[in-house]
């Protein structure tokens, strides 16, 4: 049986670390950086594991349009 896998690409320079994507993610794939900030001083969103299913919920809720979502079947 084929499995759906996905991943996200985050524009970390534009991310303001609001955390809405982290909350919206059903697979707990996303998190906020714990020891790094961007040039504006925000802890940005990062991919914490490979559980992503490419549902695009994070992309939809991101107010700053920093997330691109990819999905495929393997």
């Amino acid at each position: 049986m084929s499995k759906i896998v996905g991943t996200v690409v985050i524009d970390t320079a534009k991310c303001k670390g609001c955390g809405l994507c982290v909350h919206a993610c059903p697979t707990k794939t996303l998190g906020l950086s714990s020891n790094e900030v961007n040039h504006k001083g925000y802890a940005f969103a990062v991919v914490a594991n490979d559980a992503c299913i490419g549902c695009a919920s994070c992309g939809l809720v991101c107010p700053d349009a920093c997330i691109s979502v990819y999905r495929t079947k393997i």
Binding site: K14, K16, G59, V61, P63, D64, I67, S68
Partner: peptide, 23 residues
């Protein structure tokens, strides 16, 4: 499957983090 709409330009919005305006 999802990307920034191409009509939205690359300027960083001045809104506070998490503001509904961006969506």
């Amino acid at each position: 499957v999802y990307k920034k709409p191409s009509l939205l330009n690359d300027e960083t919005m001045h809104y506070c983090p998490g503001c509904s305006h961006g969506v």
